[in-house]
Simulated scan of single mutants.
Amino acid sequence: MTTGAPTPTYPARPRRSRLRTFLPLGVAAWLVLEIWLLTVVASAAGGLTVFLVLVAGFLLGSAVVKRAGRRAFRALSETLQQQQGGTAGAGAGAGKSEGNGFLMLGGLLLMLPGLVSDVVGLVLLIPPVQRALGRYAERTFERKIREAGGGAFGDAFQQARIHRPDGKVVQGEVIRDDAGSGSGDAPSEGPRPPLNR
């Protein structure tokens, strides 16, 4: 009987999030649905009709994206002018560009070839839908920030620090031994301050 090195034990792999598990399946199902709908419409109305619908969706989507980009640029320039002028009404430009994100997303979905993406893109162009989705996204973002405790940056900084094997933090300080290197540089006088302040 031979005795060898013990088999190393590895920590358990973290569970995959539901989004990472189901997103590829959702994209594949969406692509299959789009292709199936295009073939159904092509068999019912003809290939030329499907081609014209796809071209019209692309042209409408590009016009919507162009309009949203112009609105966003106009709101940005107004905000910059108000900040340079010191005007108190800095929130006026933000109100005009409130739905630009969903307007841009709707235009991009219209530009994608497919009927389902066109329908979703058209729904995103409706202002009440944009406002409702904006409020939902804002609430979700604020909830995630509260769940994280606002300490995400502090946690990242803590992880970046050097730890000894017993878990104690080692305060970093670099001391060069110039006297032994023979480089001819004069050693600095006195101790150096620590790197973290």
Rank of each mutant, 00 (worst) to 15 (best):
P6M: 05
T7H: 08
P8N: 02
Y10L: 15
P11I: 02
P11A: 14
A12G: 03
A12T: 13
R13W: 10
P14Y: 09
S17T: 15
R20Q: 14
R20T: 14
L23I: 03
L23T: 13
G26E: 04
V27R: 01
A29L: 09
L31M: 12
V32L: 15
V32Y: 04
L33M: 12
L33G: 13
L33N: 04
L33Y: 04
W36M: 11
L37W: 13
T39S: 12
T39Y: 09
T39A: 15
S43H: 06
S43V: 00
A44S: 11
L48D: 10
F51K: 11
L52R: 15
L52G: 06
L54F: 02
L54Q: 10
V55Y: 01
V55E: 13
A56P: 00
A56Y: 04
G57V: 02
G57H: 08
F58M: 13
L60P: 03
L60W: 11
L60C: 13
G61S: 08
V64Y: 05
V65A: 14
K66N: 12
K66F: 15
A68L: 01
A68N: 02
G69C: 05
R70W: 06
R70S: 05
F73T: 07
F73L: 10
S77N: 04
E78H: 07
E78L: 10
L80D: 11
Q82K: 15
Q84R: 14
Q84S: 11
A88L: 04
G89A: 07
G93F: 04
G93N: 03
G95S: 06
G95L: 13
K96H: 06
G101T: 08
F102N: 07
L103T: 12
L103F: 01
L103A: 14
M104P: 03
M104I: 06
L105C: 03
G107W: 06
G107P: 04
L112Y: 07
P113K: 07
P113A: 03
L115H: 02
L115N: 03
S117N: 06
V119Q: 02
V119G: 05
V120Y: 06
G121L: 07
V123W: 14
V123I: 15
P128S: 08
P128K: 13
A132S: 09
L133Y: 07
G134A: 09
Y136H: 03
E138V: 02
T140F: 14
F141N: 13
E142V: 12
R143P: 03
I145P: 02
R146Y: 00
E147N: 01
E147S: 00
G149K: 01
G151I: 11
G151Y: 07
A152Y: 07
A152W: 08
F153D: 04
F153H: 10
G154W: 02
G154N: 09
A156Y: 09
Q158G: 01
R161E: 00
I162M: 10
P165I: 06
P165W: 12
G167P: 08
V169R: 15
V169L: 14
V169D: 01
Q171G: 10
Q171S: 14
G172R: 15
I175T: 12
I175K: 13
D177T: 02
D178R: 14
A179S: 09
G182K: 03
S183N: 09
E189A: 05
G190V: 03
P194G: 10
L195T: 09
